[in-house]
Design a protein around this nucleic acid. Structure first.
Lengths: 191, 191
DNA sequence: CGTCTCGTTGAGAGTTTTCAATGTAAGTGG
DNA sequence: CCACTTACATTGAAAACTCTCAACGAGACG
């Protein structure tokens, strides 16, 4: 499972075998069954997690218990409540497995040590966060500018793989729509 | 004006005098009068800009000419269309000065060279992007979860300085509301 | 077979927008 | 310094969009 991680890292930075060995010592593998939590809202987010297999969701809950999905994380991507992770404040997100998943976990302390011991990891995470930031900006612009209809169409066009992998109600939550609205959009599109 | 930049960098990383001298060679100062553009949508974003003075806005425009403000950038912060800057694709944002401003510009090529020549800049930008990401996530969550009323109140509470510095219609655009709605919210709050 | 999850459909309600009119303050050029 | 224009804010009324609630249907799974 470390191979998935190394492959991902090497898309951004070259890695020596010796560095791979060092890296292995920083990560702890973890299995997470469907519906199990990696992080519970209110607790401090102890880990940043690289997903080697499966699919997770990160979401907020409001006073009425309604769920707002912030991010889906399939294999090959990272997840955590970054705010909580770095600041050690209680998390506002809950992170849960949508499918049985395999993760590699790293703590903040190890994260900091890793970037000191292997400085090119600063570059890796600079590039990772840089790309994440661009993605988030695009998502935010979609929220600002698009109608329900447009959001849904964009999603199908840009993330067909994900759309087919999750139930419609989760997609709705991610897009900031109700599941009923999506039903109605589908009907209009097929006519 | 470089002092503002150095001060900002040194909140995240220590800097030697020699490094400051190197840094100076990478940045070009620029004055930007109110209403003038730093970047026009459709052009490639050539610069990442550190604002030493003034205030800018970055926004999208839809087919109807409606403006959607993505970010306000006061002194001490960075602005650019990151997607366009790093990918060299045409920008989707326009960036404009709201007040007479002073900027320090760096090109992509120099940005890359800088991180190679001064590796701790990777760390600096890792931390910068990390924090920006957390901010964007919070902003996105607000868009997903909050009503017009709640968005406005949060804004006043968390960014009173900015709110007092910009006209209401720009604030509305930033929050994804109409200026009329904000007028009505104000009336309700003061009663 | 029963239960749980997920999706569809209808009707009504709520929030926010749009459009248009009006008000007000602040520049700007003659 | 005044008249005029421009920028910004307020208010009302109607319209649009999406949601909520409730009922029902269909498939998956133990």
């Amino acid at each position: 499972m470390y191979e998935t991680l190394f492959k991902h890292l090497q898309e951004k930075i070259p890695l020596l075998e010796s560095e791979k060995e060092i890296l292995k010592t920083f990560f702890v593998p973890k299995q997470l069954k469907k519906k199990k939590l990696l992080l519970q809202e209110g607790n401090v987010c102890k880990y940043m997690a690289f997903v080697t297999n499966g699919l997770l969701k990160a979401y907020n809950i409001d006073e009425k218990g309604k769920e707002y999905i912030n991010q889906f994380t399939p294999e090959g991507w990272w997840t955590s409540d970054m705010d909580s992770f770095f600041s050690k404040q209680p998390a506002s997100y809950t992170i849960e497995a949508i499918e049985d998943s395999e993760l590699l976990l790293i703590t903040v302390e190890d994260f900091e040590n890793l970037t000191v011991q292997v400085p090119k990891m600063d570059r890796y995470f600079r590039l990772l966060f840089q790309n994440s930031l661009i993605t988030k900006e695009r998502r935010l612009a979609n929220f600002q500018m698009l109608s329900a209809d447009e959001k849904y169409k964009q999603m199908i066009e840009h993330n067909p793989g994900l759309v087919n992998r999750i139930p419609q109600n989760l997609l709705a939550s991610f897009l900031g729509l109700s599941s009923e609205t999506i039903s109605r959009l589908k009907k209009n599109i097929n006519s």
